[in-house]
């Protein structure tokens, strides 16, 4: 039975990032607890089949965090260990950004502002069919610079897509710096509320709080779409990566890999 222990997930990310000499570690670390809670307690995959027709949909719109999702998919048995040790080897399947050809990944993202709309289409499809499937779209705070997010927010509210929840990974950074310095977002919760969403803000590393907030949002009798603003730390779990945007781009070497593993192993669960 998969436990989705945050430390184990972070270790998997570090192992694959080191094996593949790849970037975007900070982007993956800010969403570890969010994904752990979703997979553990909320997402329904009948028969543990990532392609079950009546599954819930998890759309990783911020494709840069895909290693965190791979780590969860490994616990579910959807990905083999070789895919991790051979990450980025020539001819391998797992890419550096979400690619929908991998069962379990619903969208091809990385170009930002796409998955949110595709997720809305899935939510609309479920509504039209009258199923109880839920759609979760995980977006970055930098990503909500993109126009289609707000086009879609209007649509979601107008069509009362109460089966749709957008989770904003508010780690405060985007590729070139702090969101505050690049393009101020202001109060994200208020923005979604003004578009007609029912919204909450929580600590995105507090699993109990995440779980509770999602429960509460789904328990609402409102027909509004939902927004969960998760305050997170980019690079969470490894002190020298936390709030340090170079870990959007930096690759691990032997030394930083060892230090990061030690930090993750020693961190509180």
């Amino acid at each position: 039975m998969a436990s989705f222990d945050a430390r184990a997930l972070r270790k998997t990310v570090l192992d694959m990032a080191f094996a593949g000499s790849t970037v975007h570690i900070g982007c993956a670390f800010s969403i570890i607890e969010l994904l752990a809670v979703l997979y553990r307690s909320h997402l329904r995959y009948p028969g543990n089949d990532p392609q079950a027709t009546d599954r819930d949909y998890l759309v990783l719109s911020k494709g840069h965090g895909v290693m965190a999702q791979y780590a969860c998919m490994r616990e579910l048995g959807w990905l083999k260990d070789e895919a991790f040790s051979g990450y980025f080897a020539d001819g391998s399947d797992l890419k550096g950004l979400s690619d929908s050809r991998i069962p379990g990944l619903e969208v091809t993202s990385g170009s930002l502002g796409h998955g949110f709309s595709v997720g809305l289409g899935m939510a609309m499809g479920a509504k039209l069919r009258g199923t109880d499937q839920k759609t979760y779209a995980l977006v970055g705070d930098g990503e909500i610079n993109e126009g289609p997010i707000w086009e879609g927010a209007l649509f979601a509210a107008h069509h009362e897509l109460k089966n749709f929840i957008v989770i904003v990974d508010e780690n405060g950074f985007q590729a070139m710096g702090r969101t505050q310095d690049v393009l101020r977002l202001g109060a994200i919760q208020s923005k979604f509320e003004s578009f007609g969403f029912e919204a909450r803000t929580i600590d995105g590393h507090d699993e109990a709080a995440i779980d509770h907030a999602i429960e509460q949002l789904w328990a609402s009798s409102s027909t509004a779409p939902k927004a969960l603003i998760a305050k997170t730390v980019k690079g969470k779990g490894v002190p020298f990566m936390e709030h340090n945007n170079i870990w959007h781009y930096t690759r691990l070497n032997q030394e930083t890999y060892a230090q990061a593993l030690a930090a993750v192993a020693g961190s509180a669960s």
Partner: peptide, 23 residues
């Protein structure tokens, strides 16, 4: 019939999501 509004990017993304659910 769905009028998605003057919001073409979202409309095309949603069409993909709808196609994924069998529409």
């Amino acid at each position: 019939y769905i009028n998605a509004g003057i919001a073409e990017q979202n409309m095309v993304g949603m069409a993909a999501g709808l196609a994924r659910t069998g529409f």
